[in-house]
Nucleic acid binder design. Sequence first.
DNA 1: CTGAAAGCGCTTACAG
DNA 2: CTGAAAGCGCTTACAG
Lengths: 356, 356
Amino acid sequence: MSDRTRSPLSIPLPRPRYGARPTMKDVAARAGVGLKTVSRVVNGEPGVTAETEHRVQEAITALGFRRNDSARVLRKGRTASIGLVLEDLADPFYAPLNRAVEEVARDHGALLINGSSAEDPARERELVLALCARRVDGLVVVPAGDDHRYLEPETAAGLATVFVDRPGGLTAADTVLSDNFGGAREGVAHLIAHGHRRIGFIGDQPRIHTATERLRGYRAAMAAAGLPVDESWVSLGPTSPDRVRAETERILTGRPSPVTALFTGNNRVTATAVRVLARFPRPVALVGFDDLELADLLTPAVTVIAQDAAQLGRTAADLLFRRLEGDDSAPQRVELPTRLIVRGSGELRPAPGTAL
Amino acid sequence: MSDRTRSPLSIPLPRPRYGARPTMKDVAARAGVGLKTVSRVVNGEPGVTAETEHRVQEAITALGFRRNDSARVLRKGRTASIGLVLEDLADPFYAPLNRAVEEVARDHGALLINGSSAEDPARERELVLALCARRVDGLVVVPAGDDHRYLEPETAAGLATVFVDRPGGLTAADTVLSDNFGGAREGVAHLIAHGHRRIGFIGDQPRIHTATERLRGYRAAMAAAGLPVDESWVSLGPTSPDRVRAETERILTGRPSPVTALFTGNNRVTATAVRVLARFPRPVALVGFDDLELADLLTPAVTVIAQDAAQLGRTAADLLFRRLEGDDSAPQRVELPTRLIVRGSGELRPAPGTAL
DNA sequence: CTGAAAGCGCTTACAG
DNA sequence: CTGAAAGCGCTTACAG
């Protein structure tokens, strides 16, 4: 066996991790100084002569030393990291929220650990507790469940928590929401103003706060116009394309007098409804909650109630860091406005004689 | 002052974090057992009588104890967390990749720390090194820069790294890419097959590997068909809507013989080009790299070369965990196929007489 | 079945 | 300006 064959020492071992890394102790030994002096140089603390500093720097470079923040965190008590739990990192609504939280964290020198609850309260809890075990300094949560008593020992110990997009089950926490009720009411009123009297509503599962708030806005707009709501026009449930497609078709073809317009409760519902409408024999007006990329290019272009997902994330993260900096004023509830974007689909009028 | 006024003790203090939390030592004291026994119960290790375990559990509940994983990590050497650095968490292409990496991490009991490089090599480096300082077990990186020598001390110490979407500047690392060259070649060949001879190409900045690979595919398809490329038809640069809009208009109106078709180099370019084409006086064929939501509903629907972002993420994360489990075979380079999705915009033929 | 001691790699509080 | 000692909250290796 030559020297170039695999050494018997490379038999599958678990990879060495920390053991293989130089520590401050190694740097100190090589530079011939004390541990604390290395710490001073690494952290840019004053009180080291240029010559000593130079020797330490040289040892750091030679050894490839990089401070182990895990150890630092243990001693300092702050991890300089925050957690974000939301429904789905891949969702076009939540992705910009995620990015916005990241930017704020970055501005504060913190890292972001995040994950998807997949709308499962048990998974949310598991993820949140894992983040707590890592001792994140704070938590931004889009709650999937409504019982957050499991967080009480954490908040009691000083964990800052902000709920965003939906309220959580913890009265002491800050909350940042969109005006779901007002936005939906405005969108439905917009359809009514264009002559519609029979309007369908397709939304997310009723245990989701935004779904019921938007439904409430729908009902308020209908009531304000003195219009009755036939319960067969209303459908809450999972936003899977299959269900939304089936429900859209059911509501559009309802007998004896089908709806002439549709209000869709979020981006996923709208995307599927638009596909059904594209193949539907008669025109149906549509206003959707949440904006969609390319919505302006469809025929007709899609009128929406837009919320600002990035602003939701930014506001929540700002609040969180304010708490981390010591603000202990009463918990806040911030509500961000929505915006009606008129593009065409919401301004279609009912065919003559069909709106009665 | 009554008891209900604010106590002078609540004068703005930095929030207590760990200090306020019970430790295993506290639990041991309350349960009247040794520290190691608490550790056994918390970690579900065998060798504790039911009665002792019960006492410990009770103390845990009463104190609201939750194990501090920061301390655990320091001792064990593994953090059970991985890092992901990509261009933009909010981008509809990267968001599903992010989610896919998260799912794999979750399957392996690891948390995900992630962040956006914003296509800035310095920011990428800063983020990656912060993740290394936290001692993530592994790293998935969409590189913004091409010099990753700064990672060498880390990989030497055992850090596993996988580059995804683009190759990195570290030959020892695994790499997962889409077939950018082949996909673009196929898309352009598709346009040629529909009668086009003058085809424009608008892509991302030339320092980005995917941009130049796709351009190479364009040139290969043109060359294979014996078609000359007028360099005024080709534009690489930032994907900001302003630049892409201006370049699209320039290329479409080029004198004396403007292009009859366009190949767009990624999702952001396509979204802007589609907007220009929608208002353009004559029809122009289009094939875009990357699929877009609602692309099937535009008029004409957009023909694309789709890559599977989730599969890129999944493959990269799978590779990473295989390395973490001890696989020390030679670095792999995986190339995933792209898929032509025919929808209409890519099958428009040049107006009679314009294709010469 | 149970626990005391040492140690992970840093920072803190002190002393010189 | 510099450094030795103690300690953050766990796990490891060992002894009883």
